[in-house]
């Protein structure tokens, strides 16, 4: 699998990462070699193998439906890069 500039740009956009022209070239190479490494997997036949998502094959535990939290609004809001009137602010979202 070889990657070209447009692939890298598409991935970078999906990942919301701005990349420079130099980085673009570096990614073409490094991602290419990582994918070559990863492609070793394709030699293995796994047709009858159930994917393993969790190493212990456990099931989800359930939480009792109770309100257990206290309001930490001020502490959380203090972490916000930009906020006003208790809201997180971001550059205008255009729908």
């Amino acid at each position: 699998m070889t990657l070209v500039d447009t692939d890298i740009k598409k991935i970078a956009h999906l990942a919301r990462l701005q990349i420079s022209q130099n980085e673009l070239i570096d990614y073409v190479n490094s991602l290419g070699s990582i994918l070559a490494l990863v492609d070793h997997m394709q030699q293995v036949n796994t047709d009858d193998v159930e994917p393993l998502a969790n190493p212990l094959d456990q099931h989800q535990r359930l939480r009792v439906d109770q309100v257990t939290t206290v309001n930490q609004h001020d502490e959380f809001m203090a972490l916000a890069p930009v906020s006003d009137a208790g809201l997180y602010l971001v550059p205008k979202v255009i729908e």
């Binding site: 997997m41 394709q42 293995v44 796994t46 193998v49 994917p51 393993l52 190493p55």
Partner: peptide, 13 residues
């Protein structure tokens, strides 16, 4: 990729 890797993960386990 991901699904394949999880299958291999099962084989390793």
């Amino acid at each position: 990729y991901y699904r394949k890797a999880q299958c291999i993960r099962r084989l390793i386990k």
